[in-house]
Amino acid sequence: DEAATLRFQTHHSPTSLQGKALIRFAELANKGSAGTLQVEMLTSSSVVKSSEAFEAAATGIIDGDATGAGYVTGKNPAFQFYGDIMGGYSKPDEILGWYKDAGGLDLANQLYEQFNMHLVGVFVATPESLGSTTTLAGIGDLKGWKFRSPPGMESEIFQKLGSAPVVMPFGEVFTAMSTGTVSGADASTLAVNKGLGLYDVGKHASYPGFHSMPIEHVTVNLDKWNALSDAQKQVLRDAVDTIAEEVASQSAVDDEKAAAELTAAGVTLHNWSEEDRLAFRKVAQEVWADWAQRSPEAKAAYESHVAYMAKLGILK
């Protein structure tokens, strides 16, 4: 019996935390299936552009997409609630809990399967940190704060708080920040931002982060998924679960190390107060509610998230 070949593509580079984890996912699946699965992880979007990987998998150009739902919100706004619930959860475990214990995975698959894709599982790193040349001690500092932001839900939330999000390619952020064109930028986690050199220009960081925690998904073409045996399916699910734990803990370790080094280097780390985080979440919730109106699937996801957050006590 020939092994089932599954070619996944991720936008992450093979040397990044997530890229390494996904390569390990492939190894775990191949080993765990005793050779009945041949999973390949193509890195750095080497076959199709990141935003096209989902559809490429859906139509069988590749077999699986390992980017995130944030790339396909144009197909259905509901994907925003599976890509990043901005300002919502603050720990990886909370998101993973929604998928596992609150029916999130089944709800997600009602949406994913409409697009001929099956969601195997998700993983997340620590919440992202902002970088800024001006102080970011609390919600008041966001007023009039001009920063580089990806377009979409994030800029809507910050606009409501009086910030001025500017859409510009990330490569140009550094000059823009040193010349004062913008004050800050949103890129990734504290450790990754440090590696990018963001804190060489902006000496203020939000940490632990409050505004964004992108969800990485591992998805398979639905026909390919249905052709797998139950044992093979379980191997893939287990492999995602394994890397999900590793990524969450490793990114926390990386962030702590970066935080110590940055503090020593004179960067100020701003840990927002509980009230400010709640205030941010409250404004974010208005934007979520607005997105919930944009499709029935979005509404379903929104309601499920809000119910779960209330249960966890992170929404008042």
């Binding site: 790339y71 144009g74 377009p151 979409g152 809507e156």
Partner: peptide, 8 residues
């Protein structure tokens, strides 16, 4: 199908 951005 839309672009999935703010202006969309």
């Amino acid at each position: 199908e839309r672009f999935g951005t703010a202006w969309n």
